[in-house]
Design a protein around this nucleic acid. Structure first.
Lengths: 381, 381
DNA sequence: TTGAAAGCGATACCAT
DNA sequence: ATGGTATCGCTTTCAA
């Protein structure tokens, strides 16, 4: 069974079949220029007969537009980018665009290579989650060569490009405030805390205290840690670095292990207090704040695995940046970040730019929402 | 600040700069044909000087290959496809390929449109998770027109195309056997059970008993239900349809709600039995089997939210088809499906076909692995 | 080893 | 309203 690759028919074939010129056939098939109704139907019939399928490469070569968006994600394997991709591709497809997706693996060099590949493929624009906001030469070059760039989730703010981001500091701060207001004083932070320039929580805290940190320049998990710290300081609550879990990778399994170990130390059961701020003695944690969706999954699994009740034995607030997940399990409180919506927004913005929108770059800050499911407070105990 | 879109320089520019013909410049830059060392360096220097970037559209137009894979996923928003995509794009990028991704939303018509778009964009091959295995005309057409197709996760077996699938029936069967062997008799099944032609669990079970079902033709969640049923029958354990939770959507939130409601009914605590098969009296469930990663997330969240211990109060076996998740929380047992690996396999296979591999179509069945973390059995009560 | 010229499959411009 | 033809940027004979 040798499949003859069935030479695709071209506009010329259609034209011949319909008895018109290629120019005319092109006008009908491409939907540009004039054509009488009679010719129109004849060409269309001919096209169907010979099984015509437009070659978008050829079209793109001459029009200079490919109707393709290029996306550089840090890791599409992560549900975070999956949600974003969903939003992007929905918008793109609705506009007749395709989306080429690539990974940077949080590595600036890979990102540069990815951008290069996408530009060679002549994408009409780029959506990028920069691995390193301080290295933006390649993005600048892309913009200069006429390819609009929209930054997603991370933004190199020295770059004159649109951005769709979330205020991670504020979101985390209000979430942790919720726990503090409920009387918790021993709240663990569960985050990745690996990428980014900071290597030490104590040093980070010191910098933050001196207000030497610009939240917008931080990597997501550090942003959220900043919010955690700010909430504590505002409440006059001490921070114990031992309760800041640096998971080191966006892995639910790793988060579960870290949380499991923490919960195993001094028993959380009965170790509560609701005296409103007096103590930071060495009891177990009474609450957990998980800084993103993956951490949340691991945290919940660990709590479940230890047979602890939420919020009875421990209160958990999850940062849920995975639209598909929506931790609505009884007792769980979430900070919802509409990632899919962010993807849609990024794509919409990019399409507008491609369409010729020439306004100044906009930084769009998307709101997060605190979703309360039951109480977070320490029970009457 | 009006950016002049900086007319990209072409091979002609490089040729002029280097003082050679476009043919020669092309040979150097494209890496084909001869060129003396002297010319080679001169051209390369010139290319760098004028900022040359190849136009892959033009190249593809003439070579007939775009070095681009087309992917049709049912929903990239789901972490399942995200994991698969990661595998695909890793392999693709390593080979210098790009990947255009589209969604079918489990809808055959959208799938057809997506395939059409991808073919117009001249992708070199397709990876498809068919929404409806019974409708494969478009895939057949793609193959006939010389674009190899690799099916992922779902396979239209009337189609002469490669496939990378998992034996979901066997995987579920062995997982449930584990619970039955440990003495559980009231095991809930948590699955999507929406897509596919079956509307009724009882009718499905009847068909399955008569061996009128081909597991390979079932949708994933029904496959796993079949394994669940088969394990029960083999053990002589009765099946109570009320314990088969049809969540109806791939939503962790919905799964959490369903599981929460089930656990709320008769208290699971103390309602155990380990008499090895006598009873199916109306106690609460003692174990849960979650049929995929999303269901698993919801199930674990619900158990945690109710403050139940795993495996103390209830034993949970999760089907983990999300490599990033790996429910290794203490006590959780998982059936690991290497989705990312499946993606890699699909891409590798497709690249081989594109490269000219002309062998007969292969159906590659990927192994799942039962990962035990602690015990699953009902405790000594 | 290099160069001239003919395409690839469309669109766009200019006559008619 | 329709047709001829140059053109997009590159690869690929075919001569030299």
């Amino acid at each position: 069974m040798t499949n003859k690759p069935a030479k695709r028919s071209t506009i010329a074939d259609v034209a011949a079949e319909a008895g018109v010129s290629t120019a005319t056939a092109g006008r009908v098939l491409g939907g540009y220029g004039y054509a009488s109704q009679d010719i129109r139907t004849r060409v269309q019939r001919a096209a169907r007969k010979v099984g015509y399928r437009p070659n978008r490469l050829a079209r793109g070569l001459i029009t200079g537009r490919t109707q393709t968006l290029g996306v550089v994600a840090a890791d599409i394997g992560s549900p975070y980018y999956a949600a974003a991709m969903r939003g992007i591709s929905d918008v793109a497809e609705r506009a007749g665009f395709g989306a080429i997706i690539t990974n940077s693996d949080e590595d600036a060099d890979q990102e540069i290579a990815a951008v290069e590949l996408l530009l060679e493929k002549q994408v009409d624009g780029l959506i990028v989650s920069t691995a390193d906001p301080s290295r933006d030469a390649h993005l600048r070059a892309a913009i200069d060569s006429g390819r609009p760039v929209v930054q997603l989730d991370r933004a190199a703010d020295a770059l004159a490009a649109d951005a769709v981001v979330v205020d991670g500091v504020a979101a985390a701060r209000s979430a942790v405030e919720l726990l503090l207001d409920a009387g918790h004083r021993r709240i663990a932070f569960v985050g990745e805390l690996e990428h980014g320039r900071h290597r030490d929580v104590a040093a980070f805290a010191a910098e933050a205290r001196d207000r030497r940190l610009d939240g917008r320049r931080l990597y997501p998990s550090w942003q959220r840690l900043l919010g955690y710290l700010e909430a504590h300081w505002a409440a006059g609550a001490p921070v114990d670095p031992r309760r800041v879990l640096r998971v080191g990778a966006y892995s639910a399994a790793a988060a579960a292990a870290a949380v499991g170990a923490l919960l195993a130390e001094p028993p959380a059961r009965g170790g509560r207090e609701d005296d409103g701020g007096r103590g930071d003695d060495d009891g177990g944690v009474t609450a957990l704040f998980a800084a993103d969706g993956v951490m949340s999954t691991g945290t919940v699994a660990a709590v479940a695995g230890r047979g602890l009740a939420i919020p009875g034995d421990v209160s958990v607030v999850c940062f849920d940046d995975l639209d598909w997940m929506e931790f609505t399990g009884p007792g769980l409180t979430t900070v919802a970040q509409p990632v899919r919506h962010m993807g849609e927004l990024a794509a919409t913005t990019l399409l507008a730019r491609i369409g010729g929108d020439d306004g100044p770059p906009r930084r769009q800050i998307v709101d997060t929402e605190l979703v309360l499911r039951g109480s977070v407070g320490p029970p009457a105990a």
